[in-house]
Amino acid sequence: MADDTTVDPVEAQVLDGNAVAGLLAAAFGVEMTEVPGACAHCGTVSMVGELRAYVRAPGTVLRCPACSGVVLRVVETPSATLIDVRGAAYLRFERG
C-alpha cells in the first residue's frame, strides 16, 4: 500500500503464481495454479498459485513460499516462452 512504510519495498511488490497463470496455462496447455509442485531446495509442496512471484525483472521468478528458493523462471521472447524448471523436483498433473 502507498501508505505502508514498514515493509521492504521489494517484498511489497511480490505477487503470487496467479499473476502469471495465463502465461503458464498457455505454455503448459492446462490450468496451472492448482498444480502441486515440490521445491527442489527444501521439498515443500506448494500449488503454483501459492508460489511467490517476483515480476519486476526481465521475466518472472517464482519462489518457494517456505524457503524462498527459485522454483520456476518464466521468460517471454517475441516468439517463445522459456520456462526454467530446475527448481522444481516435480510437478504433479492429475489425469482427467
Binding site: V14, D16, N18, A19, V20, A53, V55, T60
Partner: peptide, 27 residues
C-alpha cells in the same frame, strides 16, 4: 501477508486460506 499470518496464528488450517496478491505484472 498481515491477514493470512493472522489467520494462521488464530489456528485456521493453512489449506483453508487462499490468497491472491495483486499489482502490476511485468509481462
Amino acid at each position: 501477508e498481515v491477514a493470512a499470518n493472522a489467520l494462521v496464528r488464530l489456528g485456521l488450517p493453512g489449506d483453508r486460506i487462499r490468497t491472491e496478491r495483486f499489482g502490476p505484472t511485468g509481462t
